[in-house]
């Protein structure tokens, strides 16, 4: 893994399995390069998290992939089509959940989902029945009790779940989630994570997600891509990333009422040795690999340090 400069992510995925295929994507506003050559792919059914500090280019990247923004240069294929010129049929296969939607306030929840679903009906196929039946969908996002409520009366978390429901009403093959759980309480967050797992396990939906919640990225994502200053600085599973950043794992224990902390290269060997030496005296043992947060901070700081 490279920590500085360009990194091509996911090139080992066979071409026909690539739901997202981005090559050397560049975006320039005036004199500033927001994206300076980004390449990555996502495989069918994969959950890919896009992380990075504000201004790293996450939103620009996702908007280009959604077909909402033109790029300056580079090759982009989403579901095999260039989103810049994609038609309505492509649109029907993609779901979008954005950050700040306040639309359709006067509509009732069920009414809105039913209406938006009708746009997808002409794109129903034998494999994928579109749209998602409203009652099932309400149940899946936990809004059944609020089905007849006006959208403007929903709480922040309920509104967000409605946004997700609208994003998936057409049973998309690819779903974009832009900071989906901002403002969720822990229970709502847990339910949302279960929903995402259901989408990927049952329907093989591919998901591209941006988030600032590293814990969430770790729970949901099969693969994490970290963007910094318009370049990909890391790509891999949370485990791979943390292992590659530092080899050290934190081991904590108590012996005779005293606390010990040790950073071990090989935690398993270290613990084995610990038990051999002290046996029954060891208590409260904890072995903790670097959290994704530690890894992320280190990667971003290293990348920024490399420039200075």
């Amino acid at each position: 893994m490279t920590l500085t400069g360009e990194l091509d992510a996911g090139l080992d995925v066979p071409v026909d399995e690539r739901v997202i295929d981005v090559r050397d994507l560049r975006m320039r506003y005036g004199a500033k390069d927001v994206l300076a050559g980004v390449s990555f792919t996502a495989r069918r059914g994969e959950v890919l998290a896009l992380l990075g500090p504000n201004g790293a280019g996450k939103t620009t990247t996702i908007e280009i992939l959604e077909g909402f923004r033109m790029r300056s240069a580079g090759e982009v294929r989403v579901l095999g089509v260039d989103p810049a010129g994609a038609g309505e049929h492509w649109r029907a296969r993609v779901g979008v959940v954005l950050q700040s939607w306040r639309d359709h306030g006067k509509w009732r929840v069920r009414e809105l989902l039913k209406h938006l679903g009708t746009y997808y009906a002409p794109y129903s196929t034998d494999e994928i029945r579109r749209p998602w039946p409203v009652d099932d969908l309400l149940d899946a996002v936990g809004l059944t009790a609020h089905a007849d409520q006006r959208v403007m009366r929903l709480s922040g978390g309920q509104r967000r779940r409605l946004d997700v429901a609208i994003g998936i009403v057409g049973r998309p093959e690819l779903l974009f989630l832009d900071e989906p759980t901002t403002g969720f309480d822990p229970a709502a967050r847990r339910e949302f994570h279960d929903l995402v797992h259901r989408l990927t396990d049952v329907d093989e939906t591919t998901i591209l997600l941006t988030t600032h919640d590293l814990d969430e990225a770790e729970k949901l994502a099969d693969r994490i891509v970290i963007l910094n200053d318009g370049l990909i600085i890391a790509d891999g599973s949370a485990d791979q990333l943390s292992r590659q950043v530092t080899g050290l794992t934190e081991v904590r224990w108590t012996r005779d009422g005293q606390r010990f902390i040790h950073a071990a290269e090989d935690a398993t060997a270290f613990v084995r040795q610990l038990f051999l030496q002290y046996g029954e005296d060891i208590a409260d043992l904890e072995v903790r690999r670097n959290s994704l947060e530690d890894t992320y901070m280190k990667l971003v700081l290293d990348a920024e340090g490399g420039e200075r």
Partner: peptide, 19 residues
Amino acid sequence: EREDGTLLRAKATPNGMGG
């Protein structure tokens, strides 16, 4: 409706703008 995102919603929906 441009400000509150209704139009973007239409854009994100197949044939949504026409509708």
